[in-house]
Each structure stands twice: as structure tokens, then as C-alpha cells.
């Protein structure tokens, strides 16, 4: 019974050979720190994500240095012009430069996405950490409240708030925070519930250290890993949500340029059919940005997971 596998070297085998040769030459040393960083940077998708993210972010921040046009300035002499040397991505139906609007719109869209994700994260973490550590009725109440928030359809919440308070950037932020904190809270809670049983926590209790110090100073840093991943992923989700809501006319007031508001122009059938430069580039930018953020999020998750290869 000689079913011996043929001797063929896989890519993995070759990398093993290389490591072994280096090890035996004594060329490798233990650098335990920065393992996560190294792993993150050696992930090609994550690195591509970071580069794409930075390009979009920096062009949005330095928009005035890149395009000479004011994104709000109406130019009735240049309506619906196709891309040209003068207007790289053409103009919309009131003659505003589309490229300028995409760059300036990025500022608001990224602010909304990142801002609401971070704010929701902070809120979720602050509540989750203490309620999971203290348990008891507080935890039970907050848990039920978070379930209500998760179960409540976002779109109805938006309609409700828009009809009561009117359209505004702040309202949109508030809505995103209101719908975004609960998943973060639950994630932190689950993490803290297991961390609170760790013996270093009990040791602090045995010394009579106060509850907030134990919860926020000693437990929290160990619970933050998954939250940062969740924040990046939520950023992408919120940017998409902003685009979607603005497209429906429920998001940021139309006069403020955001990626969603630019897309909003495309709910006109004629524009959709004839003026592709108005909606296609911005659509691509949104996709690219969301993809970049997701790559970063996945990279972060993998690099913080010790069971993954690296």
C-alpha cells in the first residue's frame, strides 16, 4: 500500500524553507510588539484600503487647492456640460462643477459617516462597559432598550425625525447615533461580561478599588479591539445610509453638497439616461470609499485575531 504523496513543494512549503534557512542563520529575532501592525500592513487588501481611504480623505480636505470652482456656485452658461478640460467631470443641471461637488461633498459625507460612527461608538462603549460590569437592573433595562433601538426600522425613525425637526445635518447625525449605538453597546457588553470574570478584575475588587475605575480604566482597554473594527465598518454603513437617504430626499438639505445629494440629481430619468457624468463618478467614489473602509475593518479584525495565520 504505497500511496505516497508526490514530492511537490507548495508555496507554503517554500515559505517554510525560507523561514527555516533564516532561522538557522540566526537572522530572525523576537519582535513581539507591533505584531498586529505588521500583520495589518502585510495584508494587501488592508493596505490598499488605507491608500484609497487616504486619497479620498485628503482630496476632500484639500479640495480648494485642487479645484478652482465653488461647489455651490450656479453657472447658467454651462448647464449639463459633459466632461471637458475645463470641467473634468462636467457640470450638473444648474451648471455646478461636478468634480468640485464630489470633493466638497466628501467632506460632509465622511464627516457624517465617521462622526456618527465614532459618536455611536463612544456612547455604546460608555454605557456597555459600566452596565456589563455592574450587571443588575441597570444592565437588564439598558439591554431591553437597546433591543428596541435595534428592532425599530431606521427609515421610520428618519421619517419621524425629519417630519418633526425638519431636514438638517445634525438631525441625520442624531439619527445615525441613535441607531448605531446599540450594536456597539452589545458588542462591548458581551466582551466586558467575559472580561469581568478575569482574575485581575477580582484582584482589584479584593483591594476595594472603585467600580468606575475598574470598569473604564482597567477593563475597557481590553474590550476596545472589536469596537474599532465595528466603528470602521459602521462608518461605511453610515456613508451608504447617507447616500441612500439623501437620494430619497430625506437626508441632508439639498443645498449642502454631499455624495448622497449629488446622486439625488439622478432620480431624474433624463439625467440617468443622458448625463452619466453626474451620477456615475460619485457612485464610483462612494463604492471605492466604502470598499476601502471595509478592507481596513477586515484587516483590523484579522490582525487583532491571534488565531489567524501571520
Amino acid at each position: 500500500m504505497n500511496q505516497h504523496a508526490p514530492v511537490r513543494k507548495s508555496r507554503l512549503d517554500r515559505s517554510f524553507d525560507r523561514i527555516r534557512a533564516l532561522e538557522e542563520a540566526g537572522a530572525l529575532s523576537s519582535r513581539v510588539h507591533n505584531r498586529s501592525l505588521r500583520k495589518f500592513l502585510s495584508n494587501p487588501l488592508a493596505s490598499a484600503g488605507v491608500i484609497m481611504f487616504l486619497i479620498i480623505l485628503l482630496t476632500a480636505i484639500f479640495a480648494p487647492l485642487i479645484v478652482p470652482y465653488d461647489p455651490l456656485k450656479i453657472d447658467l452658461r454651462a448647464l449639463l456640460q459633459p466632461p471637458s478640460a475645463e470641467h473634468w467631470l462636467g457640470t450638473d443641471k444648474v451648471g455646478r462643477d461636478v468634480f468640485a461637488r464630489i470633493l466638497y461633498g466628501g467632506r460632509i459625507s465622511i464627516f457624517i459617516g465617521l462622526g456618527s460612527a465614532v459618536a455611536a461608538g463612544v456612547l455604546g462603549v460608555a454605557i456597555g462597559c459600566i452596565s456589563a460590569y455592574k450587571r443588575g437592573w441597570l444592565d437588564a433595562v439598558v439591554l431591553r432598550v437597546s433591543e428596541v433601538f435595534i428592532a425599530f426600522p431606521q427609515i421610520i425613525l428618519v421619517l419621524l425625525l425629519v417630519s418633526i425637526l425638519g431636514q438638517s445635518l445634525i438631525n441625520l447625525l442624531l439619527i445615525f447615533i441613535a441607531t448605531g449605538w446599540a450594536p456597539m453597546y452589545r458588542m462591548v457588553r458581551a466582551r466586558v461580561l467575559s472580561l469581568r470574570e478575569e482574575e485581575y478584575v477580582q484582584a482589584l475588587e479584593a483591594f476595594g478599588i472603585s467600580t468606575p475605575v475598574i470598569a473604564y480604566k482597567h477593563i475597557l482597554p481590553n474590550a476596545l479591539g472589536p469596537v474599532t473594527v465595528q466603528i470602521t465598518l459602521s462608518t461605511a454603513a453610515f456613508i451608504l445610509a447617507e447616500a441612500g437617504l439623501s437620494f430619497l430626499g430625506l437626508g441632508v438639505p439639498l443645498q449642502i453638497p454631499t455624495w448622497g445629494n449629488i446622486l439625488n440629481a439622478a432620480n431624474d430619468m433624463r439625467i440617468l439616461e443622458q448625463n452619466w457624468w453626474i451620477w456615475l463618478p460619485v457612485g464610483l467614489v462612494i463604492s471605492a470609499f466604502v470598499l476601502a473602509v471595509n478592507f481596513i475593518g477586515d484587516g483590523l479584525r484579522d490582525s487583532s485575531d491571534p488565531t489567524q495565520q501571520g
Partner: peptide
């Protein structure tokens, strides 16, 4: 009290002194 599990009895996020300073 002295605990059993040497892996969970120290906080991985801090140096020994920082964790114990409180």
C-alpha cells in the same frame, strides 16, 4: 488573595506598575 490562572491574573493592556498604581 492569590489566583490560579497566571494568564488571567494580570491585565494584558498595561505594564505591571501602571496596572497596579491605582
Amino acid at each position: 488573595i492569590i489566583f490560579q490562572d497566571p494568564h488571567s491574573s494580570l491585565n494584558p493592556a498595561f505594564t505591571i506598575f501602571t496596572a497596579f498604581d491605582d
